[in-house]
Write a protein that binds this DNA or RNA. Structure first.
Lengths: 327, 327
DNA sequence: TTGTATGCGTTATCAT
DNA sequence: ATGATAACGCATACAA
């Protein structure tokens, strides 16, 4: 059922139906109340729904933004999604999210972005494989890329969080506290920027990274087992820099089971500064933005949707150390 | 840059360009290699990308499916998303997900589904407010609704899991084990079907629900505090039926901190039968489908995409009690 | 105030 | 084997 059907039924033209439903740029008021009434009834009777594709084709706007993400999701992403939904709704936009589980499907998953169906998109950390990014970017609408390393370019904006610097800073803090053996513990498949920041600080302190006190394992169960062994061993660390709040909470839990006094015998720092950090017992010191406020990013994204010609800008969402009771 | 630009550049008609890029219904082989080559180069040179809206308008297919969900997400949804991405990819489909945070934005969030832009959608539990469902359904393509209560209808399929029955069964199991005081513990804003199942079994056992041993609180921190108090009190339960695996793990944790022997002094059952249930220490008894396999649902969804006239069917994803070491 | 007619970019049909 | 052309459904400039 299309506009034509409605028009026929209401005894008016297609243009009038469209006018009633969406108004017109060149008119202030709508058609007369009697016509309006007839049209609206016809719409209801027939159960007319606008055809998104036709409208988008005509308007060159879909009023849709997307967030690409790579599972598993954490509270951080959830908050971004929520704020984007809020922010967009006020401007008449809807939000979809695009999960990217596997690199070999990534191009297909991202087509909805790379083929320009959405007016704007936020590509969160790790959601787009390096190899695909150019391809995605050249076909997309407004783009906001969350990435610490990728260089800026004219077509899009980039958001930095300074992971590496922030983790170095946190690790440095532990050394300055007088900690001697600072371990690293993360649920990652392989060491990344966060580990690099840790390693930076270790090197800066004039030490070598001790491989036996670095646990990087994508499988939480295996990682936990390794950590338990480390904590029970004779070269027990007196601090753990963790790759996430989740792993930090697990470490905290383990440490308490072993009866270690926190932070006296063992300091723990997480990453993300998610809500659970504040609520844990004891509250967890964590690296991250103090308050999850993405409005600068969203403002900029919608600016760019309105004006695609904007130069590429570098935004920043500074991560820093949020001290609580585990350090 | 459109097909016309490419055609001009390659010195062929737009029909030929389309032919090269997508084949034709009425031809088996493609155009000659020389033309093909010219067209492909023109496409590369100009950076042509198909316009999704135009294609969808013409084809009456977007090759997109959606999953609507209500945050927070659990492992269950993540697995569904992953399997859908896999399943769809084999059929040339991409997946988007539609988060629905707030009921007052729900209609807007769901527009991408209700306005028929996706060929099919899975509406997971709680993602669509009751009041919106008809509205969404009438505009959508193929629909699969995960819901235990909504009646079947000709336009879509419904998946039942039998939450209420399954929770009653689990609770009954606890009574049959000889447990006397079975508490209920959930991170929900208000009692729902799961609680109802618990209450059914309590009534069936000829008892009254003891309000002091029912903890239903959307805030995990508050809920945990309440449970701690309950477990420390003089009317300590000897079993806890939990509303999720997550809350069950928290209860398990708490119980162990209090030094309770599990399952001798306290039995715990979770819901979801997620991966963590198997991996916890001790492994958690949990209500859910034994293995997260959504292929029957997906098969049916795509069947319906191919043949929208199909009658409404009732699928089932039987939840049952998966016994492990906490009971 | 309402209607007519055009074009958005594609694909499918029919003609060459 | 390739091309011309007519829709797909909608929004708008322009005419009435």
């Amino acid at each position: 059922v299309t506009l034509r059907d409605v028009a026929r039924r209401a005894g008016v033209s297609i243009a009038t139906v469209s006018y009633v439903l969406n108004g017109r740029k060149d008119r202030l008021r709508g058609p007369g109340p009697e016509v309006t009434e007839r049209v609206k009834r016809a719409v209801d009777d027939l159960g007319y729904r606008v055809n998104t594709s036709a409208r988008t084709l005509r308007r060159l706007r879909s009023e849709l933004v997307a967030i690409a993400y790579r599972p598993p999701v954490g509270p951080w992403l959830e908050e971004l999604v929520k704020q984007t939904e809020d922010f967009g709704a006020r401007r008449g936009y809807s939000l979809i999210t695009v999960p990217v589980f596997r690199d070999d499907y990534a191009d297909r998953s991202l087509q909805v972005i790379s083929r320009g169906y959405v007016d704007g998109a936020i590509l969160t950390f790790g959601s787009v494989p390096e190899a695909e990014l150019d391809e995605v970017a050249r076909g997309a609408g407004a783009l906001m890329i969350l990435d610490d390393e990728r260089p800026t370019a004219p077509g899009y904006d980039i958001v930095r969080v300074g992971e590496r610097r922030a983790l170095a800073e946190a690790t440095r803090f532990l050394f300055e506290q007088g900690r001697r053996r600072v371990a690293y513990y993360a649920y990652d498949d392989k060491p990344g920027l966060r580990y690099a920041g840790y390693a930076d600080a270790v090197a800066e302190a004039g030490r070598d990274v001790d491989p036996s006190s670095v646990i990087v394992d994508g499988d939480p169960a295996r990682a936990t087992a390794a950590l338990a062994e480390l904590l029970a061993g004779d070269r027990r660390p007196d601090a753990i820099m963790c790759g996430s709040d989740r792993s930090a909470l697990a470490a905290l839990h383990l440490a308490r089971e072993l009866g270690l006094r926190i932070p006296a015998e063992l300091a723990i720092i997480g990453v993300g500064n998610t809500g659970v950090a504040e609520l844990s017992d004891p509250p967890l010191t964590s690296v991250g933005i103090p308050k999850l406020d993405f409005s600068p990013i969203l403002r900029r994204l919608f600016e760019r949707i309105d004006d695609p010609g904007l130069a590429g800008e570098e935004l920043t969402l500074d991560w820093r150390l949020n001290l609580r009771l585990t350090t």
